[in-house]
Design a binder for these strands. Sequence first.
DNA 1: CACATCATTAACGTATACGTTAATCCATGC
DNA 2: GCATGGATTAACGTATACGTTAATGATGTG
Lengths: 219, 219
Amino acid sequence: MSETATTRATDALRALIFKGALPPGSDHLEAELADRLGMSRTPVREALMRLEDQGLVTLRPRRGARIVGLSADDMNDIYEVLTAIESAAAARAASRALDAADLAPMRRAIADMENALAAGDLEAWAEADDTFHEGLLAASGNARFAETAARYTDQVRRARMVTLRLRPLPRRSNEDHLAVLDAIERGDSDSAGLLHRAHREQARVLLTALLREHQLTWV
Amino acid sequence: MSETATTRATDALRALIFKGALPPGSDHLEAELADRLGMSRTPVREALMRLEDQGLVTLRPRRGARIVGLSADDMNDIYEVLTAIESAAAARAASRALDAADLAPMRRAIADMENALAAGDLEAWAEADDTFHEGLLAASGNARFAETAARYTDQVRRARMVTLRLRPLPRRSNEDHLAVLDAIERGDSDSAGLLHRAHREQARVLLTALLREHQLTWV
DNA sequence: CACATCATTAACGTATACGTTAATCCATGC
DNA sequence: GCATGGATTAACGTATACGTTAATGATGTG
């Protein structure tokens, strides 16, 4: 496909950011990054603009691209948006008369979370959790929900690198997921929306408290 | 401030798109636009990338930048996202114990809409309507709500160029606005959210029907 | 006449060049 | 000692150059 230097730069920089190799709050000059990625400034510049639009960096002329950090307050705001989007998606999914086959990915994700929890594999749990939420957004049938949520799940994923091991085991979480899925399957739009909202709000309270406790002013 | 060619290009292209000078569905080469704006390809390219992230164009290598069009289905999806964001914003605003002074911009916008309606000035009404919705998002205290909504209000505004004169006079609309504002002022979070949701859903049904009737496959 | 193959070309992606300007440093004056 | 102003410099914004490649049309073949 179109394996342009700009896409390679975007992917590489995203990976570096998520790995923590470019830590939140750090500054990076275009030329420096270009060197590091073995290309000229042009594609790096374009990649940085895209990343700025994705909310991962802020461009500060002559001071470099700053990797954005996340305060507990930021995370709170982000969760609120995500909650609004996803619970609307859940309600809409419920109104679409989906059958078991359509919801299979979500059901499988729930099973994967169970297994991961039993095995004590937090990374696997997190991945399955992502899959569930992606499935929910897809089930809504409105691609713009997924598009909009993506920007914020990026940030949540970044924060989770830190919080995953600090938080209590997500036992209760899967009951929520099941309840949401059942509401969707039986076409109960209001319940699906409300249940999912409650689910996300719990996560919001839990995680922002965690970030605050540990003084994690950024991830 | 920083009046760079890229920002000038972005603003100019946005203006051309909203004016209809670059009609939905039309294709435009980088070099052509650069000529038209009296600059080199570089800043135009950067502007186009930003506009792509804003959902106003899609970049198709060697075929130019295509101005995105809006079908009735697109508008439906867009309204759903907007509804989710704004009603969450309304609910949050209600929970913040804002006083009359904080809500003054919204109240003024409502008055402006009344006056505009009485004067039969639809453009003024639309502008005041925007102001109300912006005020609502600002009142939420979560800047990310406004940020997220902006992308979609752009599209609604584009569609409105066409629908404004086709739709019935927005008489009922202002009652909704007042009810939402009152719910926010008395701190009734649930009502604020539900009322605003109902308000936006009415608009969604009305406008998508309008677009469908008139076979406006794009704006 | 349909279709495949090849040549042409023009739009793009990327590198590079260069002028502008904001940040930094140092000298000077208060 | 601190502030002010000017010189220095380096990062950026923009223009331009250039190789690559997809789209287009021509040519040949079944």
